[in-house]
Design a protein around this nucleic acid. Structure first.
Lengths: 188, 188
DNA sequence: CCATTCGTTCAACACTTGTTGACCCACTCA
DNA sequence: TGAGTGGGTCAACAAGTGTTGAACGAATGG
């Protein structure tokens, strides 16, 4: 049912966006391997061949669906840094962009996704490590901060652990804050 | 080259064990989907059909390769509990059984693995929640403790983040301890 | 020493996957 | 109105998957 008052170019952009959305949803839910071009096409009410024509390959579709992992943060104030990190967990429910979930879902079973995540987390770790109060191993502390948040996010968003799903996210943040601060370094 | 002084039954058990080992290694490295029966068979220097005859199906092979997720812990002393949890991260390098890594590798992309992990973590959370000092949300605190350790383990064992790979694991444990205690509850 | 078990292999099936090239037809535009 | 662009579909291929049934051949046991 073609929406009226829409130019051919508009329709094309719309179709392309619809495909990309379906892909993101499926990749986020099932990962790279288990998401099939045919399923994406069906979800977008389109022929599989069209997906190929627009995106070239399944891999290319994946990278377009992912876009970017969160950019590294920079703050010199530890408290502000912690707040910023915690807010990325989701002010309400599922606060991080779907493209990020797509990456996380596939990072344990797809080489390309793993490389991407390793690099992105590495950048975050460096940037946080530099912002932490002086201590013996700022980079290791930063890595532990990041992996802690990673674990909580996985349990919450990807595994849907009941205890986390049912908890208000500001409560989660409140409980997490002292732990993150403890990891970050010497009080003060 | 058949080892002499080995009965037919012995050889059969040896072959079966060799297949299971190859399977565990591949499942742990690449996950359920990307591990093929043919690859397992090749790694065990055996025909693919033999794998089927011994294990029935790829799924069955997987569950046999996994065996059990860590059993829930029970201790009433918080400090001892924390120590026990930290030691599961690996006294030296990679302290947890390969079967556990197999599960973790596939939990984000395989429904059965996800269910298994959810259940196992749920049990751990319950058990830890009951052992925690009285507070408002013992179960939520327990969930955060577990997911924190999960995240660090993933970063360390499955993603091989450089900052974690290069760190002595007792240093990791030392940095983690205060954070876990902060999550566990009120000091005392 | 022969019949038989049984560990093991061979060859094939049925199916799904990513990917491709030919084709159709509604819309644009001159 | 009539040619032509281009969004979209159809049908098929080649490769790889889990899985199966028949067959082989060395060790066994009577």
């Amino acid at each position: 049912m073609p929406t009226p008052h829409q130019s051919r170019a508009d329709r094309r952009r719309a179709t392309e966006a619809r495909i990309l959305d379906s892909a993101r949803g499926l990749f986020a839910a099932k990962g790279f391997e288990r998401t099939t071009i045919r399923a994406v096409a069906a979800a977008a009410s389109v022929d599989p061949a069209l997906v190929m024509q627009y995106f070239g390959s399944k891999r290319e579709l994946f990278t377009q669906a992912v876009q970017a992992f969160p950019a590294p943060l920079t703050t010199t104030d530890t408290d502000a840094l912690v707040d910023q990190l915690l807010s990325s967990l989701g002010p309400k429910l599922g606060g991080l962009p779907e493209g990020t979930l797509v990456m996380m879902r596939s990072m344990l079973t797809d080489q390309a996704a793993a490389d991407h995540v390793r690099a992105a987390l590495g950048r975050q770790i460096d940037s946080i490590g530099a912002a932490l109060p002086p201590s013996e191993d700022p980079e290791l502390r930063a890595a532990l901060v990041i992996t802690t948040l990673l674990g909580v996010t996985i349990g919450h968003q990807l595994l849907s652990l009941a205890s986390l799903r049912d908890a208000p996210s500001d409560r989660i943040a409140a409980l997490l804050r002292p732990a993150i601060k403890a990891l970050a370094g010497p009080p003060g």
